[in-house]
Measured scan of single mutants.
Amino acid sequence: MSGIALSRLAQERKAWRKDHPFGFVAVPTKNPDGTMNLMNWECAIPGKKGTPWEGGLFKLRMLFKDDYPSSPPKCKFEPPLFHPNVYPSGTVCLSILEEDKDWRPAITIKQILLGIQELLNEPNIQDPAQAEAYTIYCQNRVEYEKRVRAQAKKFAPS
């Protein structure tokens, strides 16, 4: 494992614990031996107030490669969400998460999670990743928002 990646992720964890947006979660997972795995984080993004996503808490896994922060983490909703920019596998399609697009090593975990929260309610229809959600979003916004509200209710924190 890269010392650069681990040191950056340790800084990220410290900064997150000191200050993070209300309702968001970002925690490194534990290895079988109980030690912390900084390369694999369990996160959760709350649906934004005043949107059909409100009330939901959407679980996301963030996986970092050894060359982080040169390369972005892979962000994957578990379980996958109904959304035009979420692949059926759950992987998020967002330009700041793509090395050859808008990724920059200075982007923080907090910025990534806030960017994904923004994307939930403002899909990028130029870059669809899920045919069904994309089609319904474009053709029947009322039905799309109904499905999103049902999903938010399903993923409401207990």
Rank of each mutant, 00 (worst) to 15 (best):
C43K: 02
N121P: 06
V86N: 00
K153Y: 05
E145R: 14
N40G: 04
A10V: 11
T35I: 02
F22N: 04
F155Y: 12
E99F: 09
E98M: 13
M62R: 00
D33V: 01
N124M: 04
D100G: 13
P79I: 15
F22Q: 03
P88Q: 15
G90V: 00
P157S: 12
P79E: 14
N124C: 12
C93T: 00
S2D: 10
M1W: 05
L114Q: 12
T51P: 02
T35E: 00
I116D: 07
K14L: 09
K101R: 14
P79F: 12
K65S: 13
P72R: 06
I107Q: 11
A150T: 12
R104W: 03
I136T: 09
P46Q: 04
V25L: 09
R104T: 08
L119T: 01
I109W: 08
F82I: 04
K18A: 05
S158F: 09
V86E: 00
P123K: 00
G55Q: 11
N40Q: 07
K101Q: 09
L97K: 02
Y134I: 07
G55E: 12
I136R: 06
L114Y: 12
A5F: 10
N31S: 11
P69C: 03
N40I: 07
L94G: 00
W41P: 03
M62A: 09
I45S: 06
R17L: 01
E98R: 07
M62K: 05
C93I: 00
P157H: 10
T51H: 06
P128C: 08
P80T: 13
Q11M: 13
A133P: 11
I136E: 12
M62Y: 06
P73F: 03
A150D: 13
L81Q: 01
S158N: 12
P46F: 05
P88S: 14
G23E: 09
L38C: 07
R141K: 11
S158V: 11
E78D: 12
V148A: 09
K59M: 07
P88M: 13
P46V: 09
K59D: 08
S70E: 10
K153T: 08
P105R: 05
G47H: 06
T35N: 03
H83E: 00
G56K: 05
G56C: 00
V27T: 04
N31Q: 10
L113T: 11
G34D: 10
I4V: 08
L97T: 15
Y137E: 02
T135A: 12
K76G: 13
S7D: 06
D66I: 10
Q126W: 11
N121C: 10
K65Y: 09
Q130N: 13
S71I: 08
G55S: 10
K153L: 11
L97E: 05
W16F: 09
V25W: 07
N124W: 09
F24C: 08
P52C: 10
P79A: 15
S70A: 13
F22V: 04
S71R: 08
V25K: 09
L63M: 14
Q130C: 08
N85I: 03
S158G: 06
L120Y: 07
G3S: 05
H20V: 00
I96N: 02
C43I: 02
G3Y: 12
I125P: 07
V148P: 05
E122D: 13
K59R: 13
S2C: 15
S70H: 07
R13Y: 02
K76F: 15
K65G: 11
K154F: 04
P73W: 02
K49W: 08
E78F: 04
L6W: 09
T29K: 13
P52E: 14
D33S: 02
L97D: 07
F24Q: 02
G55A: 10
A44M: 14
P128K: 00
D19Y: 03
K74T: 15
N37F: 13
G56Y: 04
K59N: 12
